[in-house]
Design a protein around this nucleic acid. Structure first.
Lengths: 333, 333
DNA sequence: TTGTATGCGTTATCAA
DNA sequence: TTGATAACGCATACAA
């Protein structure tokens, strides 16, 4: 048994106010049926001692911690997803417990030992979902940027619509086909984006997608590969990158190769990162509103956590942001 | 008293294994003095029931939660700072409790009600430090990217060195002076960067800093302002932006104004964001290793949390990354 | 080697 | 309107 802690507890407050700890509890939780003057005495004691309720003890008895756990597999727009989630969770008076989880890493387990009122699985891998599925008596779960599963509903950005709109945009500018630099293999977002691209390509030739991933460095590598393909005679005039950071690398690679952009090769990204509008040339992209997605996902989870069985949340459709990087193919030949 | 929960507890395991809950506790915590076969029976029961220790109850009695609280005021490199912290906290077998805190927002209070073993204050405002200071019997605190305070030591990136090195680099290329687009007002990072710039300017004319903030949009606005100043006859040939995202906006603004970069105006950023190397022209910047800073800060805190009074942590010196955006002034006149 | 008893700080039930 | 008292699930001192 550890020594009595230095921080004051309800009992200390009670003693000072000349009441029972139970009355203190009532005051702290705003329960009715406390005489105003008693309450006042208690509040005075609270401020005098600097008393703060012990959330752990409270959680132990109420079986609700006010914590929302987020298991997060890092990807291209996790930051905005998390920003939206954080905002919503905080607005609800709760606290976010965040664990970045390398796919297959045991950190997930650790968070599971905590008492959380609900889980957000952000861009989860199958392995991660497996871990969540193994929970006995699991709390509500919402998947963010992933497929719906038996564990719970999903809220995901309109990856597919974004890719489709961009591809169509490029085709509409006269390109015979559009190449694709793929996202992180095995992720929901990458699969959806590729699917949207394929769908929009209906009729046109479907080139082999170029392996990408995420980040400017990966994009640059992909750009070198496409440059080579072009030199080998392939019809590379338009490229859709799976995210804006890849697109940035592509832009650079094409510049290195002397293929002025926009001019001989046109490039589009996905995600509308803040920098996209300010690049030279400004990057054509589509906004998938990851922040709003995070907010909706959190809201859905919170509704479920609170028992109100949340309505499925709509997600804003991707909105095209045409910019200088995608000119007209015919105009430049 | 809530209904007995659905999830199994030690008592359930004990009953199934035919031992006391105390023996289960010993097995779970790896204490010695349990006969191997007994331990085996207990472990079997644990897996059979899917038992997971209740971290809340454990925290209540041990007065240690395994949680590290991070109060975070968003800024230019919070993402990398947090990445480093997360990594280190996880490696220590602990969990990170993250709260983004708008300056002066009461969310901090909420996190304070939790039982955390230690606090990381990331780029804290004075108000935030005030809240932490008001804690009775506070746990160990380490400031990340801020000044050391009576509350605890600080670990911060080498902002000053970065700004100094970059300014010197520009002066060395023949510029008569270097302009500065400032960071977020009131932050430690912005103050340090500006101080480094001033220090390096010793002797040269010190222009009035341009208000910036962070982000490409703010940078673009600052760029327009500098363009106007130049048109008005000021000697604007080199600019140090407080961070890379500002620099990106500057690049764009100068391009808009027909001031080819590098050519008539030279630009440097700070931070070495991944995209800096891949911009066209590639951005000269300095790496302040925020990720390493996050790791060191977390390590220092963890040492203090564990009683080993942590040695002050060194932080890597900023390393200059000269690139195309900063050419020679004389070569272009 | 194992079990019993007690307390961590709170909320909830019930009686006063 | 208030106060005893019993949980919540676990770890620890101590007894067996």
């Amino acid at each position: 048994m550890p020594a009595r802690s230095g921080t004051p507890g309800m009992i200390d407050v009670a003693r000072l106010a000349g009441v029972s700890h139970q009355t203190v509890s009532r005051v702290v939780n705003g329960h009715p049926g406390v005489r105003p003057e008693t309450a006042e005495r208690v509040r005075a004691a609270i401020t005098r001692l600097g008393y703060r309720p012990n959330a752990t003890a409270r959680a132990l008895v109420t079986r609700r911690s006010g914590l929302i756990g987020a298991l997060l597999v890092p990807g291209p727009d996790t930051d905005l997803l998390v920003a939206g989630i954080e905002r919503e969770v905080r607005a609800a008076g709760r606290t976010l417990l965040l664990a970045a989880v390398a796919p297959g890493d045991p950190a997930a387990e650790r968070l599971l030992d905590r008492v959380v009122d609900g889980y957000l699985a952000i861009a989860p891998t199958p392995a991660l979902l497996g871990v969540l599925g193994a929970l006995a008596d699991p709390p509500p779960i919402v998947v963010v940027d992933g497929p719906a599963t038996p564990l719970g509903p999903a809220v995901a950005p309109d990856h597919r619509g974004a890719a489709r709109a961009l591809t169509r945009h490029l085709l509409g500018r006269g390109h015979r086909t559009v190449h694709h630099v793929a996202g992180i293999p095995g992720t929901h977002g990458a699969a959806e984006r590729e699917a949207g691209w394929r769908a929009a390509l209906a009729g046109a030739a479907v080139p082999v997608p170029v392996p990408g991933g995420t980040g400017p460095a990966a994009g640059r590598a992909a750009g070198r590969l496409l440059t080579a393909r072009r030199a080998a005679g392939e019809d590379v005039t338009a490229v859709l990158a799976a995210d804006d950071t890849l697109a940035l690398g592509l832009l650079r690679a094409f510049a290195d190769a002397g293929l002025a952009v926009p001019g001989r090769v046109h490039v589009a990204g996905i995600g509308d990162r803040p920098e996209a509008a300010h690049l030279v040339p400004a990057l054509t992209t589509a906004d998938t509103a990851p922040r709003a997605v995070g907010e909706r996902a959190a809201r859905l989870l919170l509704e479920r956590v609170e028992g109100r069985d949340g309505a499925p949340q709509d997600v804003p459709a991707a909105t095209l942001r045409p910019r200088a990087s995608t000119g007209s193919a015919t105009g430049h030949w």
